[in-house]
Structure formats: structure tokens, C-alpha cells
């Protein structure tokens, strides 16, 4: 089978590859994670669609933006190991660092089957236990002929899509309502992706230190408690 075709495409010119990568069925392990939504549901902070909307909006503009920018920088061609280090500094919770690396490793497996290339092999060899997922995603996007905006869009969407799906399962929330929450966030998703892509490009010349570091205290706090629960539906 010819696997060289994706490599010939100019970065950012591909579109269908973005659909493959951003598809919730892309086998990279995301389905087992709630993005902090399970802890928020248990604490009574998410009870209905309006709470979910506020949760998703907050996550999008904090860890969503930070992750999207890391992915954009990787897609733009910045050094993935320096980005991995920047991701560590932006992830004070050990539970979330472990989750990010686990998901990075799972994504790496799918990515190397879908878009095999030297850059992915090199990152897998340098971080056999997994690099931070957004970094792997950015390198994957580049391998698929996608650009920084695409990578940023993909990560920004994941940052809210996961919690929305999880809350449907956790609360029996009407799936149409959950989807409507995501649809109404679309303009902000675009905005975050654009900001992340600009920052990602800037990081090429100015270094990863200039990337956004937006964080969410409750996500960091509750991730640790959640990781210690004996009974839970989601891994994070």
C-alpha cells in the first residue's frame, strides 16, 4: 500500500485527514476519559446542560487553549521534546501528567499506523512511555499534511467533546442538548484555535516559553481526588 501520498501534501492543504484525526472513533483511547467532568458531576457542579456549557467553556479557554497551542507548535515544526518539557511545566497535577502521557502513547500507536513517518518514530523512541498527548497530536497532524490551525482545532475540540460525551453517559443528559452545547461553543473554539495557532507559530522563533499557560485550579485539584476513587466510570 502506498503510504507516501500524505507526505507530498503541503502543510495545511489537507482537509479529510483532519476529519480522520478529529473523529471520535479514531482509536486513541479518548473514550475512556471525561476531562474532569466525572469529578465535577460527583461534586454537584455539573447537573444540567447550562453547567456543562460553563464547564466546557472554562476548560476550552484554560487547558484547552494551552494544549491546542502545544499541538499547534508541534504541527508547525517546533522541537517536540522541548514542547513536552513545556507541557510538564504547564501540568502541575501528576494525575493529569500521567493521563496526558498515557493518551499520548495511545495516540502514537494509532498515528504510526495511519501516517507512518520518521518524526513519529523518533518521538516514540525518545518517549517510549508516551509524550504529552497534544505534542503527539501536533506531530501527527504534521505527518498527515495538516497545519497548526488544524492541530489546534482538533485539540480544542477534544477539550470539550470528551466532557460532553461523558456527561451524557454520567447524567443521562439529553444527547441533543449536549451536542447543542458544543455547537454553541463553535465560534469560541475557532477563536481559541486561531490564538493557539498564532502562538504555536511564534514559538518556532521565540521558544515554547511564549506559549499560553492558561490553567484551571479546579481541574488540577479534582483530578488528583478522582485518580484516587476506587469506583469510577472514567479513567480521568
Amino acid at each position: 500500500m502506498d503510504t507516501t501520498s500524505t507526505h507530498g501534501a503541503s502543510p495545511g492543504a489537507a482537509r479529510a485527514a483532519l476529519l480522520v484525526l478529529a473523529d471520535g472513533r479514531f482509536p486513541a483511547g479518548g473514550h475512556a476519559h471525561s476531562g474532569g467532568a466525572e469529578a465535577a458531576v460527583k461534586a454537584g457542579r455539573i447537573r444540567e446542560a447550562t453547567d456543562l456549557a460553563a464547564f466546557c467553556r472554562g476548560r476550552l479557554h484554560t487547558s484547552g487553549l494551552t494544549s491546542a497551542a502545544l499541538a499547534a507548535a508541534a504541527a508547525a515544526g517546533a522541537d517536540p521534546l522541548a514542547l513536552d518539557e513545556a507541557a510538564d511545566a504547564r501540568t502541575p497535577s501528576p494525575a493529569l501528567r500521567a493521563t496526558a502521557r498515557k493518551l499520548g502513547r495511545q495516540l502514537m500507536r494509532a498515528a504510526r499506523a495511519a501516517w507512518p513517518c520518521d518524526a513519529l518514530d523518533a518521538l516514540a523512541a525518545a518517549r517510549p512511555r508516551g509524550a504529552h498527548q497534544p505534542v503527539v497530536l501536533g506531530v501527527t497532524a504534521r505527518a498527515a499534511g495538516l497545519g497548526p490551525e488544524d492541530a489546534a482545532h482538533c485539540v480544542a475540540y477534544e477539550s470539550v467533546g470528551g466532557p460532553a460525551t461523558a456527561v451524557v453517559r454520567l447524567l443521562g443528559l439529553d444527547p441533543f442538548e449536549a451536542t447543542a452545547v458544543l455547537a454553541r461553543l463553535a465560534p469560541e473554539l475557532d477563536q481559541v484555535a486561531r490564538r493557539a495557532a498564532e502562538a504555536g507559530r511564534r514559538a518556532l522563533t521565540e521558544g515554547p516559553g511564549t506559549l499560553p499557560a492558561a490553567s484551571a485550579p479546579l481541574l488540577d485539584i479534582t483530578a488528583q481526588a478522582h485518580a484516587a476513587w476506587p469506583v469510577r466510570l472514567f479513567a480521568s
Partner: peptide
């Protein structure tokens, strides 16, 4: 010379949305 911690917080009327929601300050 290596990054150890980098955190940005943004709250209030001029901050991006969701800062008072269940993910950030609750």
C-alpha cells in the same frame, strides 16, 4: 534554565468565558 512551572489565571468580566464555571473556580 529549564521550565519548572508555568501557570496563567484569568478571572473577572474581562476574562475569557467559563472562569466562574465548574472547571475553573466553581
Amino acid at each position: 534554565g529549564r521550565p519548572l512551572l508555568d501557570q496563567e489565571l484569568a478571572y473577572g468580566p474581562g476574562a475569557p468565558g467559563g472562569w466562574d464555571g465548574a472547571a475553573v473556580l466553581g
